[in-house]
Every structure is written in C-alpha cells, then in structure tokens.
C-alpha cells in the first residue's frame, strides 16, 4: 500500500469517526426527516457544502483560522441555528393559516351585520357572505 492510499484511508477513518454524532449530522438528519421526499436534494446539498468546507479547510484554513478563530464562527452558526429553530417552531404552529381564517371570518361577519356596506368587501367574500344567508 502506497503512502498516498494510506493517507487517504487514515483521513477517511478519522473524519468518519469524528463526524458521527456531530451537530452537522444532527442538522442533516432533522432536514431529511422534515422533508423525506427531498432526500436526494438534501444529500446533494449537504455533500456539496461539506466538499466546499474541505476545500476551505485545506487551502485557506491554516491562515484564516489565525485571524477569525473557531469561536467567532461558532457564534455565527449558533445564531443561524437559533433563527432556524424559531422559524420551524412558528411554521409548525400554522400561525399564518389560522390568522387568514380568523380575518376571513371577521370580514364575513361584518358583511352579515351590514349588507349595505358591502362595496368595501372583495367580490369573492361578498358571494360567500350572500350564500350564507
């Protein structure tokens, strides 16, 4: 076995073991379980991101790490994760759909109360309100 293949194999094993149970793994796992139909899309995106990371590490990494440092980058990643968590949480509550439904009901109720003012109400809702009579 040549030294090139040995280098490849040792890096492979070390990185594979390092990556198990990592936060990147957790993120990809959650993404695919959220959208199982998009698994090949997500696989493509995550492998592309990881390859880009490897390129950054191998080329710029050594000199860049001296100026920025992993701590700052970790903070930025933490901020993005927090934002993502809050967004997914609000998405799972279906707040937008509920709000739209409540507003529609209010408009219809208003139309029922005073049919004379129905010029201000959109036509589709007018029809719905009239059908209810």
């Amino acid at each position: 076995m040549s030294i090139k293949l040995l280098t490849w194999l040792s890096t492979y094993i070390i990185i594979f073991l390092c990556e198990l149970g990592d936060k990147t793994q957790l993120a990809v796992l959650l993404f695919t379980s959220n959208n199982p139909r998009e698994k090949w899309n997500i696989f493509l995106a995550s492998s592309l991101a990881l390859i880009l990371c490897v390129i950054v590490e191998v080329t710029l990494g050594v000199s860049l790490a001296r100026y920025i440092g992993p701590n700052v980058v970790n903070r930025i990643a933490g901020g993005v994760f927090l934002l993502l968590g809050v967004l997914i949480f609000f998405k799972s509550l279906n707040i937008k759909e509920k709000l739209v439904r409540i507003i529609n009901e209010k408009i219809i109720a208003k139309a029922r109360k005073s049919p004379a003012n129905s010029e201000n109400i959109p036509i589709s809702l007018q029809i719905k309100a009239n059908e209810d009579y």
Binding site: S10, T11, I14, I15, C18, E19, D22, K23, T24, A27, V28, F31, N35, E38, N41, I42, L44, A45, S46, L48, A49, L50, L52, C53, V54, V56, E57, V58, G61, V62, A65, G69, P70, N71, V72, V73, N74, I76, A77, V80, F81, L84
Partner: peptide
C-alpha cells in the same frame, strides 16, 4: 429542482461545519 431546500441545507451545513471538530482535524492532518 427545489432550490429552497438545496440552498437552505447548503448554508446550514456549511455554517455548522465551520469551526467544527471535523474541520480542526482536517486542518491538522493537512
């Protein structure tokens, strides 16, 4: 092709991989 999933996964994985122990290991190995 759904760009939304692609780009969001790309961004999140790239950011979370930065400053990670995998990155440090690759850096040291290189």
């Amino acid at each position: 092709f759904k760009w939304r999933f692609f780009l969001s996964t790309l961004g999140v994985v790239f950011l979370s991989e930065m400053g990670d122990k995998t990155q440090i290991t690759t850096l040291l190995l290189a």
